[in-house]
Structures are given as C-alpha cells and as structure tokens.
Write a protein that binds this DNA or RNA. Structure first.
Lengths: 254, 254
DNA sequence: TAGTGGTCTAGACCACGTA
DNA sequence: ACGTGGTCTAGACCACTAG
C-alpha cells in the first residue's frame, strides 16, 4: 500500500464501498453507467488491477454488470411471480399486497426449445420416482428452456418412468392440449399432490451460459415431485431458475 | 498470451475447468486441499495473478473455499430441511414448542441473539401489514439470529403492528411458551393462513459477515406473511438464509 | 519459521462495442 | 478510431496459519 491505509480496509474494498453507497443512494440508477476502470485509476490513484478488483466486488454482489467494450452498468431487478398453488390448481390464494413486487404484466413466458429422450435413470431420480417392477431403470426425459421477453430464465427437466409413457404424446415434443399432466390423467395417473424442494447456489458454467447469466447471479433450484391418487411419484421436474427473474410464492394453512 | 492458446479459452478458465473436473471426479473430496497458487504457477507456467484468477472462478462458483495462510479447500454441502407445511401446523406450535425448534434434525438450531425495538414501518412493510386506523405507522420489530451447530445460518426479522402487541410478551425478548404465534392467539388474532415469498441473491457485505458466508454462497430470502381468521396480515417475517445450509420444502394439492 | 492466500503495482496486448 | 473491459506478466510486501 503506497500512502495512507484509511481505516484498515483494503483500497479496493473502500472503492467498492463508495460505489455501492452511491448506487444505493440512487446516484446511479438502474441501467446507468458507473465510473470505469480508467476513471477509478485516476480518481483514486490506484493501479488498473486494483480498480478492477473494486468493480469485481460489485459484480460478485450482483449489483452491477460489466459489458465488454461498453462499461459497467447498474443491474435491474424485475422478477416475475411463480405461484406454487395457483399454477397447479384453481384455488385462489393470498389476497393482500405482497412484499416484493413482481409484474408479469404484458411479458411473455415462452418455450424456447424442447428435447425428448430416453435415458438411464440417475440414482437420485430412480430413488424418488416410482418405477414399475422389472421395468428397468429407463426414464423419459423432457428438457425445456423458457424465455421471458426473449431472455432465457428457466431450464426445466422432467423425468417420467419410460414404460409408463411410451407410445403416448409425452414422448413427443408437443404433448398436446393440457400438456404433460393432462396426458398423465389420460393414463389414469393424474397428479393430485405435489412436493417442491428448493435450494439455491451459484450456477455451473453450463447453466450460466444457457441462462445468459452475468456474474453475481445465483440460480434457484426447484425439484417438483408429482404424486398420483395412489401416492405414487409419477414425475420429477428439476428446474433451474434465473434468480433475478423470479419470486416464488407458496401459501398454506395452519 | 505467451505460447499456445489451447482452444480459444483464457488460461485461467482452462485451469479452472481442470480443477473443477478434478473435484467433480472426486480427486479432491469435501474438505480436502487443492493445489494452491504456487502449485498452479509451476504446473501451468503462469503468473501468480493468473493462478489466482483460476481459483477465484471456483470460489465464485461456491465449489471451493480459500482459507488465509492455509490453502484452498473443497466445500461441503450439508443442508437441513425446512418444511413449509408441518412447521406451522398448530399441532406443533400450539403446545409449548416454538416454530423454529421444531425441525432440528439431529443438529441443534439455536437462537443466537434477540433484539426487540419499535420503529417506523418502511413503505414495503406498511403496505403489507394491516395497521389499525390512526394507529400510526409504528411497528414492533423482532430481530433474531439462529445458529446451527454454532454456525449462524439464518437471520429473521419480524414486523408486527405496534399497537396490537404493546403490553404483551411479544415486545419482550422471550415471548413465552409457544412463541410469537401463541401470543397472537392469546390476543384473538391467531394466524391461520400463511404466504411465503422466496427469492435469492448474493448477500450484502453486512449479511455475509453476520452469516459468516464465504465467497460464492448466495442467500435465500423468505418473506412470510401471517394472516388471521379475518384475513388481516398480523405479521411479516423477513428471513435471510445461508443457501448452503437449507433446503426448503413445500407441499400442496391440485 | 516456512508457506499460504490477500493486496498491490506498472506495465502490456487483445476483443469488443459505440460512435 | 477510440475507449471499454478482459487477460496476462513479473515482480513486491503483508497477515495469517500451521507445524
């Protein structure tokens, strides 16, 4: 460190803190450009790598996004709401205003790509899904990607027992009116109960690419298991969500 | 770049990919030490900052954790399960057990610190909570931190209308048997319905410190609103969870 | 005490976006 | 064409942890 230490904090942390405060104070609004590496070098009298490190802190925090050749910009947060109840049932839940705003108004969630294949079940899937006796460990795998206003926001992978769904539209890209669950109903295996397990972590390199995630944006993992009237697990759907695009909502009674 | 480009990828990405694969293949198990900066410099013939950058990638992905003066180690993932339904069933909290103690599966989840105060409601909270007419915008705020096996994993902040809970144990650090919701029941405002909103992002510097989070670990935010029999929102609980410590679970019917 | 990661410098060349 | 962020080098000193 060259001259003063300024409160026992590393220079790059001080610079980061200053920028963070400025963003929080609204000096730089969503989408606006921050001082770049060169600006910070001059303003604080530091080397390029130090200015870079300061900006790296804000990127890792998800506050800011760097665009090559353009600059560093304040990120925006406009999620959509995904309701655990409503989307799979008709019951209306939770009147009253919500804590986080999430407007889906006028924005389109579309399937971007569909891929269907038959594969050997992983141990994790085989352990959850109720496979028929002697039916092997084959599963029908449906991989889809969803985009919101053109931006990919969700990767979904469904697993179903292969012998259950063979020779049905479920093995086709287009499952027909009502979708997957309507076809399961046709088979007399209509899902009536669901369990969703949720966690979060940083994306793998592959996930970051397929969701076009900038640095500092985690993914939310939702694993949904669908049970039929007999309590058999007929489908497992593993979803990977862009955490900056979604607010999940669940309701339940005491 | 000095000699070969090796597939259009930056050196540090190649090194990171190699280490990532090695970890995935089990060459380095949870808790084990990876090659350090010096090792990578020698092995790949790169400068210190480049080796550092490679390790930085794995840290940002949450795969690995650096310990000053010791080395870089593979991180472990041992979450506990938090069930949305069972934990609030009145069969549990109605009879002397508080909400959070309910699911310490073998491991101990303890309250680390409690802080109670009366504050002006933020716009977000005031918009959600049903405040009495003319009762002002004051809210009772209860801040708690929970630790699991000594490690902080959850920050919880409850907001309740101040005029509703004044002169009750809710304004005390210890709310008594059955906890907060039992006291609301005493007031004839027993919560009967709940809504939980969930999102995820990287922690603020403050959150990272209070949860002792290493780099590359996001937080999960859970905002729970409790409604009484009249449908009035009597409590909002904003929680910040260490994402590596929790799996959330919800169940519902079609 | 020896080795580790953390911070920092002062240069360099590149690919990219915007104008 | 110019400025931007992205990558990289070859040094340096420090604080911390472990043996």
């Amino acid at each position: 460190m060259s001259s003063r230490d300024a409160g026992r904090q590393p220079k790059y942390q001080r610079i980061a803190a200053e920028l963070r405060a400025a963003v929080a104070a609204g000096e730089y609004g969503p989408g606006e450009r921050l001082p770049g590496e060169n600006d910070l070098m001059v303003a604080h009298g530091v080397a390029r790598m130090t200015a870079r490190q300061a900006l790296g802190v804000l990127q890792a925090e998800g506050i800011v996004e760097a665009r090559k050749g353009a600059g560093v910009f304040v990120r925006d947060f406009k999620p959509i709401r995904r309701r655990g109840i409503e989307r799979l049932a008709h019951a209306r839940w939770g009147e009253g205003r919500s804590v986080w705003e999430a407007d889906a108004a006028g924005r389109e969630l579309l399937v971007d790509s569909v891929e269907v294949s038959e594969e050997d079940a992983s141990d994790a899937i085989a352990g959850v899904l109720d496979m028929a006796e002697g039916g092997g460990e084959k599963v029908c795998v449906r991989r889809r990607r969803y985009t919101l206003d053109g931006k990919p926001v969700l990767l979904a992978t469904s697993y179903l027992p292969a012998d259950l769904v063979s020779d049905t539209p479920i093995t086709q890209p287009d499952t027909g009116p009502g979708g997957l669950y309507a076809r399961l109903a046709d088979l007399g295996r209509k899902p009536v109960r669901f369990r969703e397990e949720i966690r979060s972590r940083m994306p793998s390199a592959d996930e970051a690419e397929r969701l076009t995630l900038p640095a500092g944006v985690p993914v939310v993992l939702v694993a949904r298991t669908a049970f039929d009237a007999e309590g058999a697990a007929v489908e497992v759907n593993e979803m990977v969500l862009d955490s900056s695009a979604y607010v999940l909502e669940y309701g339940f009674e005491a």
